[in-house]
Design a protein around this nucleic acid. Structure first.
Lengths: 97, 97
DNA sequence: TTTATTTGGTTTATAATATAAACTAGTTTA
DNA sequence: TAAACTAGTTTATATTATAAACCAAATAAA
C-alpha cells in the first residue's frame, strides 16, 4: 500500500538541499543556507550526511581569501530523489499518472 | 522558497495513518497496523501523538469480548494534511498549478 | 485443568536524529 | 589593535522513532 520512504531524504532540511540541487546541480554553502533558512551548523551536518551517502559531493576551495564550500548532486542522488518523490505520492495520492 | 513542514505529519508512520484516515475517515487499530505494516507499540504511540494534537480522535470500546480501538480524523486533521501536502509540493515541484 | 498461545493493545528503554550553542580560523573594518 | 564579520566545524542537548518488554483477558491445546 505505502512505499517506504528514504529516511535520508525524509528530513526537512536535507530535502530542501536536494530540491535546490535538483534544479541547480551545483550550489555554494551560503546559497543553500539562505534558501533553506537554516543555521550553518545544521547545514554543515546535513551536507555531510548527504555526502556520506554519495547523494552529493562537497568540494572545498577558496573564493578570494575566504573558504568556499561547493556542493554538487550526483547521479545516485538524483535517482534517490526521484524514487523518494514517487514513494511520497503513495501517501499523498496526488498525480496518479 | 520552501514552506515549513508540519513536523507532526512529516513522519512516515504518522503520515501513513493520516493518509488512510483521509480516505476512510474512520479505521480500527488492527486495520491501520496492517496497512502501515507497523508494530503495535509504535502505532500506539503515534496515534496518541496525533490524538494529542487533535488531528484524530480515539475511541475505545469492545468488539465482542476483545478491546477495540477506533480512530477518526478530525476537521483540524484534514486541514493539517492538506496544508502539509501543499507545503511538500514546494520541495518536490510537482503539480505547479 | 493447567499451561501455552493469541488478541489487542500500553509502557519502558534504547538508539537515532535534529538542532542550537559554542568553537575555530582567518579577514576586514574602525 | 580590538571588535566584528565570513565561513564554516564540532560538541552537547533535546526530541523522536522504534524495538523490546510487558499486561490483561480470551481461547486453544495437552
Amino acid at each position: 500500500m505505502f512505499k517506504p520512504l528514504d529516511a535520508l531524504l525524509h528530513s526537512e532540511l536535507r530535502l530542501g538541499i536536494m530540491s535546490i540541487l535538483m534544479q541547480t546541480e551545483v550550489a555554494e554553502f551560503a546559497y543553500i543556507k539562505e534558501k533553506t533558512q537554516s543555521t550553518a551548523g545544521n547545514l554543515s551536518i546535513q551536507l555531510q550526511k548527504l555526502s556520506e551517502a554519495a547523494y552529493i559531493t562537497i568540494e572545498k576551495s577558496f573564493k578570494g581569501k575566504y573558504p568556499l564550500t561547493t556542493c554538487r548532486i550526483t547521479s545516485k542522488g538524483k535517482l534517490a530523489f526521484e524514487v523518494y518523490v514517487d514513494a511520497l505520492k503513495s501517501y499523498l495520492r496526488i498525480d496518479k499518472t
